[in-house]
Write a protein that binds this DNA or RNA. Sequence first.
RNA 1: GCGCCCAUAGCUCAGCCGGAUAGAGCAGCGGACUUCUAAUCCGCAGGUCGCAGGUUCGAAUCCUGCUGGGCGUGCCA
Length: 657
Amino acid sequence: MNPLKELRQRFRAALEPLVEDLEDLLEMVRPSQDPRFGDYQANCAMPLGKRLGKAPRELADQIVARLEVDDMCEPPEIAGPGFINLKLRSDWLAARLQDAVKDTRLGVAPVETTRTYVVDYSSPNVAKPMHVGHIRSTVIGDALCRILRFAGHRVISDNHLGDWGTQFGMIIYGYKHFRDESAFAAAPVAELCRLYQLVSQLVDYHETRRCLGDLERRVTEREEAAVAQEAEPLPVAGAERKRAAKRLRGLKAQVAEAEADLSQARKKLARVEQSPALNQLATEHPEIAQAVLRETARLHADDPENLALWHQFLPQCCEDIQRLYDRLDVCFDYAHGESFYQQRLSHVVQDFLDRGLACLSDGAVCVFVEGFETPMLIRKSDGAYLYATTDLATIAYRMETFHPDAILYVVDHRQAEHFEKLFAAVRLWGHTDVELQHIRFGTVLDQKGKPFKTRAGDTVGLEGLLDEAVRKAYGVVSANDDAKPGGAELDEAQRRHIAQVVGHAAIKYADLSQNRTSNYVFNFDKMVALEGNTATYMQYSYARTQSIFAKGDVDVDRLRDADAAISLEHPAERALGRELLQFPEAIDECLLDYRPNLLTGYLFQLARRFSEFYQQCKVLQAETESVRTSRLILCGLTGRVIRRGLDLLGIQVVDKM
RNA sequence: GCGCCCAUAGCUCAGCCGGAUAGAGCAGCGGACUUCUAAUCCGCAGGUCGCAGGUUCGAAUCCUGCUGGGCGUGCCA
């Protein structure tokens, strides 16, 4: 049972005779923020008073008089200007807890109307090794899928792989010119990866070489502009003076930016030029960028040789990525990459043209969308298609194949405008009865606050990151085990297993516990810190629930069926019990705006309540047998809610830590 | 230039479709280990919620302006 939902139902009955249109009033029934005001509070008397022109306190009296909550709550109290404070009765709490104990869904009722969701997330470029930038989409997307499924929805997870772009032209070119036959035979994935990076570096080298003059010129121009601005006499008046100062600051920042770009470009060049081998390759392949594009174009034109290579390489590339998904415990129903939609692209463009939704401009096919100055391009002037084209084709396919009620895109916030245009174009195209959501999240930043760059080289590989987290977790697990008063309890294999679970969880949780819309500063130490609001704290709490059963030799399942009474005499018991009953509320809240951090927040609160309870209430040595049983049941339910909650986040638990 | 996002404790952040005295974690200080696992708990200290107006019985939350930062901005994804 969802207590909040139940209370709102009761308020609905009480308010209906008083007022029409009461949905917004019902939303004002909510959990109290301060325990002194009870468990829930209704704030609807004040706005209602305004609406009806009556005194809010008087209305609160009327509402309370009609409110039938005797079975559920202590007598409601009216406070301040007209707050209605509600405290749940302990016997009601205890009865609902018993319901939850017997319920495999822990009191979370399936949604009344099942919807079909397509969730599009992770979407790595299969030619490149996955790096830290892929974490957020993968982890958040996976968590949302799990939560939606648990809530009772039909969920189709789809990994929109980047498997058809220039990166394959690079690999193909590299394979044809640079491959090391024996390395390829021994470890094809690693060799393909090397080839990609080599070609990418050479392309980059020539591109940078070509732009160097522009970069130098830009620095000079900006310096001159800044000097000129500085030479201007400052206006005397306040606002004008401020504006001038701001302009100067802006110009100086631009100079710094240009200088940084230039110095980075020079470093890039030096890296190649200082290596005789690379330098030679660069000299031998001056037109490599164009050659790569030609290989890509041949692939797209169904050239038999390149297509065969693509068919050979694709599974090998995916193998590498799959290993990471296995480690992360992430899986997809479908992995329809860009290549899957190739045949449809020309039809999409033609359809837009035929219906007059798109037009030609400078040789490119454009969809103009209201509210945006710049159009969405769906075909380049050279005839090539763009990712917007693929996105449109993908939506059409999903609509006819899955008939979804909603499609969620778990993608970096920097693509917000792209999605706004895309969604608008889809509406023009006629798909109006589907919820399209860009589940945006903040960029992963480095320590300096700069976005991780995919090309710049210095990205942290995802695999190494996971290894490091596991390594750190191993250290902490061992230290904790060694420090146990009765001596260490875990053997080497157990420690390693626990370190795997704890390390991976640390990385996922660090991401999920943050509001997805804010930027995510990548901080290794913070990620794997094993204290505070972390997965480890939750996992530890879970392990403690299990260790009580082990120590007391208690059969949890038998206890569950025993129908024993639950007592909530101690404040810590009551607080824990109420928290446990709010699991359904946490799920609801979380799905309202697709924000997993609301679920982590709930779990953290629950784990804290449990720690308090654990500290203050002896379980195995409880005063009486019935209190002991009651507390054991609370421990059992706590363990199940934590385990289930973490499972919904894609995080596992262990019985001993 | 235009558009979008952000600004809350020393640090990292939560709270943001209006509710009572703004919350956590980390760091700091002081307590609690003959432990049902101290990876814990209790207490203290820490704040002009960027600034200025406005709407309201009531604003961190909504509106306007400003300041500071980030991102995006027709043929990359």
